[in-house]
Structure formats: structure tokens, C-alpha cells
Design a protein around this nucleic acid. Structure first.
Lengths: 119, 119
DNA sequence: TAAAGTAGGTACTTAAAAGTAACTGGTATG
DNA sequence: CATACCAGTTACTTTTAAGTACCTACTTTA
């Protein structure tokens, strides 16, 4: 890219959002957060429908950003366990707030459309 | 899509993140939040580098989600003013938290790499 | 000895998003 | 009488991301 558009590449908020967005990502974090550390295969089964390629991509992204910790045991067969890193846990309150807002909006919209339909 | 993947389409957090992510979006909200209501052309100039098409798309998305309010005056030439709607303002604390976290991580990473380079 | 499980990697295809350029109607300006 | 401004829209192209399928090396199980 020749000219980095202002507010796009430079914005640190965007960098974090870019990390979280995309299919599966928040769901992966949600599982690690509520179910605790999980192995690759477990995670894949629990997310359900995700391919190994995309799961690997997401986990690498999250690992590079240090939201998730990867523990590799060179046993046979190898055991790779993923867990929430401190930075991942740091996002929990924000994600909780976001979830509350999102759920409330969803409920408001349903009530609003129900009321509008009844009138 | 045949089977809606679990945790993907159903997740309300994802719906809001999907709204905020993407180039320009948080920057547009940032301008409306810090500079106050702005007209289409002003917004376009202030964001800088965005095309009318994409800016319109983003504003329509935000308007549909009721984060932003659109005021159309059928004068000649027409005046269209965009402002933060209540829902948009509701996100402010969360975006502030997110920005603080993002900036701190950025700083930590810079210090970390600087320290690592010095050693 | 063939299959299945471990944790992925690689190549290819497809679909969605983003960007580019030209166009709209109506008026005021040069 | 051609141009520019306002706030977009439309058609088209390019880029990016996501998805599909198959591959690795090694071991245990049937």
C-alpha cells in the first residue's frame, strides 16, 4: 500500500477490532474463557464447522497478539494446548460489556418490531 | 450458506463487532464523537482517502443499526447532516476502554522490542 | 496392513469486500 | 454555456478472506 490512509492503519482500536472480528474469533475466545484450556482437536470439535486451516490461522493471530498462549508438548502424538493469556483475560470485562449491550439491543429491537406489528 | 455455523451468525457480540470493524468505521464514529455533527462532504474530507461509495455504505450501516442519525434537508443544494445517535453514544465508554487497552499494548510492545534490541 | 487420531501445512477455488471511475439532478457561478 | 458543488448511485475491477480438499510424520488400534 502506497499511502497509509489516516485513521485506518494508524488506529490502534482498529488493530484490536481487526483481531477480534472475523468468523469464529470471539467464539474461540469464549470457549477458552468459559471452558478453560483446550487442545487443538477439542477446540475444533467444540467450535464445530470450522476448518483446521482457519482455526490455525485464528489461533496464530491470537497467539501473535499474545491473547492466547500455546503450549506445545512434543510427545507422540503431540499435545498442543491453548489457553487464555493475560491479555486475553484483560479483554473479558470489555467483551462482557459488549455482550450486555448487544443482547439488550437485540431485545429492544425485537420488542420494538413486535410493538410496531401489533399496532 | 447451508448450515449456519454455531457461534457465528448467532452471536450478538459478533454482530456488533461486525458493525464496528472494517476500514474507516471506528474513525467515522471517532470524528462524530469528538467533532460533533458533520455533513457528508465534511466527513469525507476529514476522514481523508475514503470514497463516497464506501462512506455511504458505512453511514447506511451505522444508520440502520441506529448508531448514527441522518438528517436530510431537501434544500438546494441538499444538506445531509450525520450525528451520533443514543446507541452510538452508548458505545463510547467501551470504545474508550478499548482505546486505552490498545494504546497500552502498543506501548508495551514498543518498550518490549526496544528492551530486547538493547540487550 | 489398513484405518484413525495427533496438529497442523499447502494448493486451489470461490465469494465477499473494497476500491475506481463515471454518472445523476438541480442550481449557482464564471 | 460549460463548470463545479451537493449527496450520493451504478457499473466494473481488483484485492482479500474464507472455504475445500488433500498432504505430512508418527503411533496406536482393529
Amino acid at each position: 500500500m502506497a499511502s497509509p490512509a489516516p485513521g485506518r492503519n494508524e488506529c490502534p482500536i482498529d488493530a484490536v477490532l481487526r483481531l477480534l472480528m472475523g468468523p469464529w474469533t470471539t467464539y474461540i475466545l469464549y470457549i477458552l474463557r468459559t471452558q478453560g484450556p483446550r487442545r487443538f482437536g477439542e477446540l475444533k470439535r467444540e467450535v464445530g464447522g470450522i476448518s483446521a486451516k482457519v482455526l490455525t490461522e485464528r489461533l496464530r493471530m491470537l497467539e501473535d497478539a499474545r491473547l492466547v498462549h500455546r503450549d506445545y508438548q512434543a510427545t507422540i502424538p503431540p499435545q498442543v494446548t491453548y489457553s487464555l493469556a493475560p491479555r486475553g483475560a484483560e479483554l473479558n470485562p470489555m467483551l462482557d460489556t459488549l455482550r450486555d449491550i448487544a443482547l439488550r439491543w437485540q431485545k429492544e429491537d425485537e420488542q420494538g418490531s413486535a410493538k410496531a406489528a401489533a399496532e
